[in-house]
């Protein structure tokens, strides 16, 4: 089955790969925002994950350790954010933006000696004969482990937020930190843990860019993926499965427009490049009209600092 020279199975398979970084980062940010913290430093954390993951993978020769290193590197950066906003009560928006700038600069510094080096290859999960099934095999059984991990994590975050006590506590902290505090929950500690989780996920996403998707290190490699992740969180109205849809939509349209061009389709590329952003705006308008902020589903305490003395 071909659509204007594009094999849909191949297209879906490549959009799944293209979406992984933004999906992971958006998922992490979703948990952070659910806990009531707005961390705009996703881009900075992603690129720290990209360089730390790259360095670890190159030095150890193991892509698995690379992903761990990437997650840890970005976590370390998010710890700065946690310290500034949760302990020193700094403004979250300004701190987040600064974190991005700092991350971009620091990653460039760390990456000085790593330009032009090839990282060890991340193997594809061997599904044996399953991968040879036509269409389905190409779409479902021909990926590296992180693609499956990212989907599993979406399910995991969804389940934890919806069904578990932990999820309830995180949501409570994000909706009303005063009430959560009155009930005896350690608001600051919970938020710091959420920020660290967000950092780890952004780091994984960043490491995926430098280890699998591009496999190399260049300055500024994430090229704005962190900002798209932030947009996806809003697009998904803070619901995990919609993150999956949002990421596939963004990743899919990027891949689709390039594929359409390569296949020689006569479609103006400018419109396709804009479309994910247009859709986001459209969704935001639809969601925010009518029933007001409640329908937007944004955590009520989002972006507000908390101090026990208040």
């Amino acid at each position: 089955m071909d659509l204007g020279g594009i094999n849909p199975a191949v297209l879906i398979a490549s959009l799944m790969v293209a979406s992984v970084p933004i999906m992971l980062a958006a998922l992490g940010e979703l948990v952070v925002e659910k806990a009531g913290v707005l961390n705009l430093g996703v881009e900075g954390m992603m690129i720290m994950g990209a360089i730390c993951g790259f360095v670890t993978a190159v030095e150890t020769g193991s892509p698995f350790l690379g992903f761990i290193g990437g997650a840890l590197g970005a976590m370390a950066l998010s710890l700065i954010f946690a310290f500034l906003t949760q302990v020193l009560q700094a403004n979250q928006v300004a701190t987040g933006l600064a974190l991005t700038l700092f991350g971009l600069g620091l990653s460039s510094l760390i990456g000085q000696g790593y330009v032009g080096i090839k990282p060890p290859a991340t193997a594809i999960v061997p599904f044996g004969p399953l991968a040879d099934i036509p269409v389905v095999g190409r779409i479902l059984f021909s990926h590296d482990p992180v693609v499956y991990l990212s989907i599993a994590l979406v399910a995991g975050v969804w389940a934890v937020l919806k069904f578990s006590r932990t999820g309830l506590v995180i949501r409570a902290v994000g909706e009303s930190h005063d009430a959560a505090h009155a009930l005896g929950y350690k608001v600051t500690r919970i938020r710091i843990l959420a920020i660290l989780f967000g950092g780890a996920m952004a780091g994984l996403g960043g490491a995926y860019v430098s280890l699998v998707r591009v496999p190399q290190w260049t300055d500024g490699i994430t090229a704005g993926a962190g900002w798209i992740a932030l947009a996806i969180v809003v697009f998904a109205s803070w619901k995990p499965w919609r993150i999956l849809i949002g990421a596939y939509l963004f990743g899919g349209i990027t891949v689709l427009q390039l594929n359409l061009q390569a296949a020689g389709a006569r479609i103006p590329v400018e419109y396709l490049s804009m479309s994910p952003y247009l859709i986001t705006i459209l969704v935001l308008v639809i969601m925010s009209s009518g029933k007001g902020r409640a329908s937007l589903n944004a955590p009520v305490a989002l972006g507000q600092n908390f101090h026990a003395s208040r």
Binding site: A18, R213, V214, A223
Partner: peptide, 9 residues
Amino acid sequence: FDPAKEADA
């Protein structure tokens, strides 16, 4: 300059 996009292309 957008390594990810260039790789996708």
